[in-house]
Simulated assay, not measured.
Amino acid sequence: MRKHLLAPGAYVQGDGVIATGESFGTLQGTTAFVLGGETALSMTESDLHLGLESAGVDVAAIEPGVDSCTFDRIESLVDDATAAAADTIIGVGGGVALDTSKAVADALDAELVTVPTIASTDAPCSSVSVVYDEEGNFDGYVHRDRDPDLVLADTGVIVRAPTRFLRYGMGDAFATRFEAEAVARSNEVTHAGAHSTGAALTLARSTFDNLLSYGESALAANERTAVTPAFERIVETNTLLSGLGFESGGLAAAHAFGKGFSKTDADAQHGLLIAFSTIAQLVLEDRDPDILESALDVYHTLGLDRRLTDLGINDGAVETVAKNACSKDTTMSNEPVTVSPERAAAALRTADELIAQY
């Protein structure tokens, strides 16, 4: 049985790490092309210049306003980076900018640095880019052959983002343990095309433990723009542990339900959809009542508590979510139980009622 653990080449986290040359010490390239969102770059550009200059890396060009990840935008940025003779691509911002940077680095076979400015996603540590069309509809994936060479999480920057982004990231991380456990029980392969390692499963389980122990305090710290040990723990949980957990531990029903929601008029952030879907996954698998109770407790304590109507889904749309969640292009087949659209719909409705009764 082949096992495979995916991970970034280096992960550096801390308050002020962008401005220090030591943070970039693992880089081999000498010429950087920086891309990102307007706000993200306005918060980090001066510190990036300081850190890269100290590390002996020249900033050849900076491309702001990267607010969509489309194949046309990727192609345009590849041309710009080629003209700049860049050997290192640096993506700054949220999931869209980071996914775009991964696709550009893949096309050029360049070194890649991701610099998240919010902790709402595990995109900074993964190899995959999700690409959309001009209307915002899913258009495909780009799979880089390796994870980012360097992930730089400056908590002094991330703490300045609205608290809701930290909560969205916790919603996504909320699923990591339970999906990895499902994949391990079903003996399916992970995103890496192999079976999960014991280390991946341990990391995945630690995401839930950290949310339980530090999540509430981290949210309070974020409200007051305070970088505390709890805040640092949750940034690492949302960014690194969840990223390692999903790539090397695997995805199952929670993200399958998430894809089902995407085929409807659901109106909610990814993290909130995945958090609700995690409760539905636990119902689907008939997990131990103590585990379900613990999950519901965390779900409510962290302010993730949403019902189907809060997500923009009426009862009639549940069948659509369930049917699409069970299609061949989702990760529902990684479940250790047999799942039909009818059973999936029952799990969604039961999760909704459990959340209402909690």
Rank of each mutant, 00 (worst) to 15 (best):
Gly21Trp: 10
Arg160Asn: 15
Val318Met: 04
Glu75Trp: 10
Leu112Gln: 00
Phe24Arg: 09
Gln28Cys: 15
Ala256Phe: 04
Phe138Gln: 07
Ala356Pro: 07
Ser206Cys: 11
Val227Asp: 02
Ala317Thr: 15
Ala192Lys: 01
Gln281Tyr: 03
Asn137Arg: 11
Asn187Ala: 15
Leu27Ala: 06
Thr197Asp: 07
Ala83Arg: 12
Asp80Val: 11
Gln28Ser: 15
Leu166Asn: 07
His195Asn: 14
Thr202Ala: 15
Tyr141Asp: 11
Thr278Lys: 06
Gly14Pro: 08
Val227Ala: 01
Arg160Trp: 13
Gly91Asn: 04
Asn137Ile: 03
Ala32Thr: 02
Lys323Trp: 10
Val183Glu: 00
Glu45Ser: 14
Asp305Leu: 05
Val321Trp: 04
Tyr214Phe: 15
Glu53Leu: 12
Phe24Glu: 01
Asp58Cys: 12
Arg146His: 14
Glu181Gln: 11
Ser294Tyr: 08
Ser127Glu: 08
Gly215Arg: 03
Ile158Trp: 07
Gly93Leu: 03
Ser333Phe: 09
Thr31Pro: 12
Asp149Phe: 04
Glu236Ala: 12
Ile355Val: 07
Cys125Pro: 04
Leu240Thr: 01
Asp109Arg: 11
Ala322Val: 00
His143Phe: 13
Val78Ala: 06
Thr207Ile: 06
Ile355Trp: 02
Arg205Met: 12
Gly37Asp: 10
Gly171Tyr: 00
Ser42Pro: 06
Asn324Leu: 10
Asp87Glu: 10
Gly171Arg: 02
Arg306Ser: 10
Glu181Met: 10
Gly140Phe: 02
Asp122Ala: 06
Val183Ser: 09
Thr39Asn: 14
His143Asp: 15
Val235Asn: 00
Ala204Cys: 08
Arg233Cys: 08
Ile234Ser: 04
Asn238Pro: 09
Ala123Pro: 00
Leu150Thr: 04
Leu296Lys: 05
Ala119His: 04
Ser23Val: 07
Glu232Asp: 13
Gly245Trp: 00
Thr202Glu: 15
Cys326Asp: 04
